[in-house]
Amino acid sequence: METSDKLTSVVSAILKYAIILSIACIVIGTGLMFINGNANGIPISQLANYENPKSPSYNSSSFSPVLIPQSIAHFDALGFISLGLWVLIFTPVTVLFSSLVDYMYTRNRLYTILTFIVLFNLFAAIVIVPHFVSN
């Protein structure tokens, strides 16, 4: 049993459009950051200060993905940049979902289970494991 042509073209399309969407969001966010001189109220000079990893205000730990829609509604740079980065992180999830549907449809039980395990690992990394991470 070989990979179906339909799955191949769906996965290829997801990867292609996800990368376009993601880079577009990051470019818009970066443009806004320089035009407005700040992102989420933080001055750009401080955003560009990456020398101290212990500073919580300027890295991802202080900006929950839940804030993205609200931030984008306010046309804030951080919302767009974060959306771009999360699109990248979620691209493999979408690819795996497509694979899962294809394997279920073709009744390939073994690969349905294997894909499910990989999706579970990704789900654990996105939702469960972060609760055990300090910061």
Partner: peptide
């Protein structure tokens, strides 16, 4: 995603 919540992604 783990790096994100741990604060290692600097925008």
């Amino acid at each position: 995603s783990i790096y994100w919540y741990a604060g290692y992604i600097q925008f």
